[in-house]
Structures are given as structure tokens and as C-alpha cells.
Design a protein around this nucleic acid. Structure first.
Lengths: 343, 343
DNA sequence: TTGTATGCGTTATCAG
DNA sequence: CTGATAACGCATACAA
């Protein structure tokens, strides 16, 4: 009592052993007698010994820890990704430090800096909406810390990546809208310097072009990812002389904002206007009407990101790898099913 | 290049200084010349020096870090609590390590153990559903690590606590149901060894008693917190000869399960049956019909928990403190408003 | 104002 | 099989 934390030296003194022997016994070193091991481990557990991870990591030069930088944990997508990452990492004996950038580039810099200071063995990151300057990421790489991007990936950056084929998801959703009788499809876009959002936009645009639909810039709302922005975007779209008959959001939240706004303003969904989201957040199934969306398999994306990290530490000289996941559209009542084609 | 991480010794050598001087310069020590400071800080930033937090914390005996143990981050309630905790803690210069027990008592033990090994300065915890043995928590306290409970609190444990007046919330919800024409109110209970759930049950029961309603044990479903269990509970209740006309869930998720089950089985909500939840998760506003629930102010609860930790480190001998928050009911369309009384 | 010496708790290396 | 010693990187008491 009195002593906050006991050390291997305390144990050693009591057992008339050397601290090194205690250390080895605790780590199940092969050439320590079974007798001694038993003795040491018994006392350690009786005295509730907890090794000092700081000291151990300092000495070993690694904390066997991976840092995770997320925009925010308060999103099913990211929370599920954490589960996948932890499952793979824990099995491999790694711990995870979760940090949040809150969509702020500055906070993200701090997270990275703090993780480097904590001497993490790798960093898995989904960058913030704001992030444009990438020097903090270059800094991490220059310290030979494996850097794995997932989901939100900067354009033109050499690193391992887990990405969704956002293009394909957006293309399919747009195609579905077209094939089901929607003529004027509006799009709520995200920041175009993030690949996922530019790819979603490309999918939308290409589908329109392939079907010989005009791409009308008044139907494209920029930087529209939050529920609030979605409502604003919908307001803007509904005030147009020729208002759209469908709104496709780059995020479930902006789609939700649009949906609520349309309902509040007397539009019937999907009879008057169809709505499509992106991410398949759990609430999409629950709202009225249920929101069509695109499943991204966040858990699997997390697992894949963790696996890329493990590959990187296993083979220090391995090249960067990219894993692409295929999304699936989930059609629900928020979209018209007029079946104008046989598709 | 080549070197992964540079140290104060590297900087010292380059500047022809001693490592201690460099250390002091970087920490803005008062008796280091402005000249030297500028020199050192310039080089440090040029070379992208990142202090080794492991070494620093080991030496200082504290990492200025707080550990957080949550059942899971994939809940708005907990994710919002994190925000509140971080806001207060970061302002005070502390970092947060987030861990998840996944509602497993064993995993929770591991989290605590790992946090103690990381030499956190305090632990904020909301315990898992499974947790009954509290030895891991006693272990933490015996090492003089301040322990702050929030939301899910074990009965009869001396520690600082941030709790909701769950009794009051449940009482008010039940009272509302009574006053609005519901005669047979069923209850989906949680594990009674957790104070929040026993208090919710007590609120429900007391309200019934106060209004001279019978407390019918066939209307009480035990251990019913998940969406799945909620659906099962509803199935059980609807199969009763005299089925209830209202279901009050101890969680939004079990209430949701009940709501979906009732809808799927042809009951109109609220005409045929009223549903009330607990926690006011964001989805409650969005579903059809919107689910009545009880707001817990998770962000404020997080802030309060962090504040209690700060109090504990500021005054080592301070007594345990308890902060009680007052919940507010949020009535939505999932409940009948028959107004049988003037209330 | 700066340098020297020491120790935080652990583990790796070398001896015995 | 076990012990002695040094070192991980940093911060502090003490010295100059």
C-alpha cells in the first residue's frame, strides 16, 4: 500500500531475485525454470502488478500500437470501420489509438503529431473535409510510419489505400433513377479534392451522359454533405423554375436534409420527388419513407485497412497496395419504381 | 534520413549544445536565453522533431492522459459523450484514450488493465451490461487512479459519478402514458444490477402505483435492450390474452424493435399501441412514426465526467462527488395523446 | 545561462 | 538457468 505502482524491482526484492529474471519470468522466457516462473507470476498477480507499458515500449522501440484518425466517431460508417480494424489488429497483438479530427484540418494535424509522439507503428486515416495541405502526412511517411488511407483519400498521394468504387456506386444509383422514370436528377456534391466525392460526381455525370441526359449545372449543389446543407440545397432546387424530380445526395445526411425539407414543403416522396443517399447509414431503413442508399461495407473496409497495415510491417519494403471494394445499391421507397425500361 | 526519429541528442550535437539545454529550450524553460531557444526551436521544426511521448511520460511519471471505457462507440449517446469529455479534457491539456468493451465483462477487464499499464491519470467508465465482478475497478482505485463512472453505474460502489435521474425520466414517461389514456403499459427492462436500469424500472413501477394501476409481471420483459430483444418482447406481449396498449422500453433500440414488430403485425401506432423509448437517439425523430423518448444530454454528461476527473486530480484528497442530470421527455407521434386528464 | 549526472521501468546483451 | 549492466529518450536536481 502507499505505492501507486509496483515494479519488477519490487517483485525481485521480495523474491530475492534479479529484476531481469522477474522480467523474463513474466514474459515466459524459455530458459527460466518453471519453478521461478510460477513463483514470480503468482506474486505478480497477488500484488496486482501491471507492467509499465511506457517503459516497455520505450525500451523495445515500439508500443505495438496503431493510430486511427477519423473525422468523427459519431457516424455509423466510421464506428463500424473501427470494429473491423480492431478485430484484425487485436488478433495480431496490436492496440488501437482512436483520434478524431472533427472535420478540421488543424485538429487532424494535431492528431497525427500526437500519434507520432506516441510512436505508433502505423497510422490509418480517413481525412477531414477540410484537409488540403498534406504536409503532416508526408511528415509521418518520412518517419517511415506506414500510412494507410481508407474511404476519404487525397488525390495524388502515394500510400496504401482502401477505397470504395464510388464511381460505380454513384453510376448505378443514377442509372436506377434514370431507368425508373426520373428525368431531372439533381446532385448534392461533396468537396471535389476528396477522391470519393469527385468519383461520386463522376459516376453521376457519366451515367447521365451515357443515357444522353443533359448535365445541368443548376442541378448540382456544391459542398453539400450535412443535413443542414442538404435542406438548403433542396430549398434552392425546389425554387428553380424547372425543379428536379430526383435528388441524389453524396451523403445520407444531405439526402436526409433534402428529404425532410421536401416533405415539410408538401412534396410527396417518391411520387413528386425521388431521393437517393450514399453510405447506407442505419437510419436510412428507419425513416419515412425509407431512404435508398449505397452500402459501403464499412466493417470490411476497416478489416482491409488493418490488413494493409499488417502487410506493411511484415514486409518493410513492400510496395503500396490498394484494395478496392465494390458498393451495392439498396433501393427503398424513397425512389420511384416506374420501370420505364426493362432494366 | 535513415533515422526514423530524431532525439534531443541529435539536435544538441548539431547545435553544439547539451541535450538538457535542448530539452529546456523546447519546453520554454525560463532561464534559457531567447537566442538559444530560437535556435533550438528553429532546428527542431526544420528537422521535424517530434518528442518521444513515451520517454517523456515515463520520466515525468504521467502521460497526462485519461482512459475512457465505453460499451461501444457506435451509439449516439456514447459518441456525444466523447465529444463532451474531449472538449473539457483537451482544454485542460489532457489526452483521451478511447477503449470499447463491446458489452463484454472480460473485454472490459482488458481495457482497464491496458489503461493501467499505459499509466493513465484517470479512468472514465460506463460499464458493460455483463459486468458484475468489479475487481478490475477496485484494482484501479487501489492504484490511486481516479475512477469516474458515468451513465451506467454499478450499485454500491464508492466513486465519483455522473448519473441521470433515470427514475424521474421513467416516471414522467409512464405518467404521460397514463394521463393519455393508456391502461395496460408494458415495460422492457434492462439488467437490474445496473443502477440506470433498476431506476428506470422503479420509475415505471412507482408511477403505476401512484396512479393505482396494477403492476402486472406478465407485462414486464426482462433483459430487453437490443432491437432484436425488443422485437421478441413485443411478440411475447402481443400474444398475451390481454395485450398491452403501450410499451415503454428501457432503451430506444428495444423500443424500436417493438415498434417495427408491431407495425409488421398490423398494429397501428399509436392508435392500437403506444411506444416510448429511452435515450433520444437521433433516429427516434426520423422513424415512422417518430418515437417518443427521453433526452439524457450526453454531451453535458461527458463534460461533467471530465470535470469530476479534473477535480479529483486537482484535490487529491477530495471526496467522491456525484453529479445528477435531469432528463426531459420528448413526446412524439408514437404515443397516444388522448388527454384523459387535464395534465 | 548552460552542462553533468541520474533515474523513470523495462528489456537486451553479455557474463557466469 | 540467473545476475549484472547498459540503454531507450527525456527531464530534473545539482553543479559550474
Amino acid at each position: 500500500m502507499g505505492k501507486q505502482h509496483i515494479t519488477i524491482h519490487d517483485l525481485a526484492k521480495i523474491l530475492n531475485l534479479n529484476a531481469s529474471t522477474v522480467s523474463r519470468a513474466l514474459n515466459d522466457h524459455p530458459k527460466i525454470s518453471a519453478e521461478t516462473k510460477k513463483q514470480v507470476q503468482k506474486l505478480a498477480s497477488e500484488m496486482n502488478y501491471q507492467p509499465n507499458a511506457l517503459a516497455s515500449s520505450l525500451r523495445k522501440g515500439s508500443a505495438h500500437t496503431v493510430g486511427l484518425v477519423l473525422p468523427r466517431v459519431n457516424r455509423n460508417f466510421f464506428a463500424s470501420a473501427i470494429e473491423g480494424i480492431e478485430a484484425v489488429l487485436n488478433k495480431a497483438g496490436y492496440h488501437l489509438i482512436i483520434t478524431q479530427s472533427n472535420e478540421s484540418a488543424e485538429k487532424e494535424k494535431e492528431c497525427i503529431s500526437s500519434l507520432i509522439s506516441s510512436r505508433v507503428d502505423g497510422i490509418i486515416i480517413s481525412i477531414s473535409w477540410e484537409t488540403k495541405d498534406l504536409s503532416h502526412l508526408i511528415a509521418a511517411q518520412s518517419k517511415k510510419i506506414p500510412l494507410i488511407f481508407f474511404d476519404r483519400i487525397p488525390r495524388d498521394f502515394e500510400a496504401s489505400k482502401v477505397m470504395l468504387n464510388d464511381y460505380q456506386g454513384a453510376y448505378q444509383a443514377t442509372e436506377y433513377l434514370i431507368n425508373n422514370g426520373n428525368k431531372k436528377i439533381a446532385f448534392l456534391a461533396g468537396p471535389q479534392h476528396l477522391q470519393i466525392y469527385s468519383e461520386r460526381f463522376r459516376g453521376y455525370k457519366t451515367a447521365l451522359e451515357d443515357y444522353n441526359y443533359p448535365v445541368d449545372s443548376t442541378y448540382i449543389i456544391e459542398n453539400c454533405l450535412t443535413q443542414e446543407r442538404g435542406a438548403e440545397g433542396a430549398a434552392q432546387l425546389l425554387s428553380l423554375e424547372k425543379r428536379p424530380d430526383a435528388i441524389f445526395g453524396s451523403s445520407d445526411y444531405s439526402a436526409l436534409g433534402a428529404l425532410v425539407y421536401c416533405k415539410e414543403n408538401g412534396l410527396r416522396i417518391p411520387e413528386d420527388i425521388s431521393i437517393f443517399g450514399f453510405a447506407n447509414e442505419p437510419f436510412t431503413k428507419l425513416i419515412d419513407p425509407p431512404l435508398s442508399s449505397i452500402e459501403q461495407f464499412p466493417n470490411k473496409m476497416g478489416e482491409a485497412a488493418a490488413q494493409l497495415f499488417l502487410n506493411a510491417v511484415k514486409d518493410k519494403n513492400s510496395k503500396h497496395q490498394t484494395i478496392e471494394m465494390i458498393p451495392e445499391i439498396r433501393v427503398r421507397q424513397s425512389v420511384l419504381s416506374r420501370k420505364v425500361s426493362q432494366f
